[in-house]
């Protein structure tokens, strides 16, 4: 029979004291949701998404947004709203939920902001602006959820946007995911080490973003070296 030491037999009644760590949880959640939409953005494209080339979709989307914003005739807005809603119906469940969520939140927000306007003599603003906001945000959300994001950035080329800009944008998209992972790991580590009350927790935020910045600088240098090794010149092809 093994001897269990006495201290191991006594029952522990440790209850972690609640501490305010909303900033950690909120930051983690927003980074996780951002990362997941980035990962989805690479693979997911609805079957009706592939029918149009990305530049055409981008152009169409822009044209509809400009029309929505510029028109004084609400019938035009309702027509675009109808087309948009029908398109939303045809989306995959995942994309549908995301699109409606984002657009609904945006229009509710603007309705709230515009409530005082009803009493300041412009009652119609709340309805028109909220509906227009819903249409514009849905259009962008449909575009981004049915198009592969690298095709979308490549699509910007059709608008004669300088190559260096699109190149930088591509690097940005890649590194948002890499840096997001790093920051998320550090947030996880901080959360795991913050059982109960940890007073130096909020000052650790500076460490997390500071280290992320230092790593980003290091990785930028490494990436440039790698580009030089692969014979990077002024004009690189995609």
């Amino acid at each position: 029979m093994t001897n269990i030491p006495e201290w191991l037999e006594t029952e522990e009644h440790y209850e972690a004291a609640p501490d305010r760590d909303g900033f950690m949880t909120k930051s983690m959640l927003s980074i996780i949701s951002m990362l997941s939409s980035f990962r989805a953005g690479k693979v997911s494209f609805g079957k009706h998404g592939a029918a149009f080339p990305a530049p055409l979709k981008l152009l169409l989307c822009l044209a509809l947004i400009i029309t929505t914003s510029a028109t004084k005739n609400m019938m035009v807005v309702y027509a675009i709203l109808a087309v948009t809603l029908v398109h939303i119906c045809l989306l995959k469940a995942e994309n549908l939920r995301k699109t409606v969520g984002v657009a609904f939140l945006a229009s509710v927000m603007s309705a709230l902001i515009l409530i005082p306007a009803i009493f300041l003599g412009s009652p119609r603003s709340m309805l028109t602006v909220s509906i227009k906001v819903f249409v514009s945000v849905s259009l962008i959300s449909i575009l981004s959820s049915t198009t592969e994001w690298n095709k979308l950035t490549a699509g910007l080329k059709a608008f004669h946007i300088p190559h260096i800009f699109i190149f930088t944008l591509d690097i940005t998209l890649k590194y948002i995911v890499i840096l997001g992972d790093i920051a998320l790991d550090m947030l996880n580590a901080l959360k795991l080490r913050s059982v109960g009350i940890n007073k130096s927790k909020s000052s650790s935020l500076s460490g997390i973003l500071g280290v992320t910045f230092l790593k980003s600088r290091h990785m930028a240098n490494e990436m440039y070296d790698a580009m030089i090794c692969r014979a990077y010149g002024e004009e690189e092809k995609k």
């Binding site: 305010r20 909303g22 900033f23 950690m24 909120k26 930051s27 927003s30 980074i31 951002m34 260096i164 190149f167 930088t168 944008l169 591509d170 690097i171 940005t172 998209l173 890649k174 590194y175 948002i176 890499i178 840096l179 997001g180 920051a183 927790k201 909020s202 935020l205 973003l209 992320t212 910045f213 980003s216 600088r217 990785m219 930028a220 240098n221 990436m223 440039y224 580009m227």
Partner: peptide
């Protein structure tokens, strides 16, 4: 310097990430 051009893209990524963070108040 030319090697810093890459830093611009990575800096943009850092800037994007910074906007996602919730600052404790």
């Amino acid at each position: 310097p030319k090697e810093k051009m890459v830093l611009l893209g990575v800096g943009a990524a850092f800037s994007f990430l910074g906007m996602m963070f919730n600052v404790p108040m």
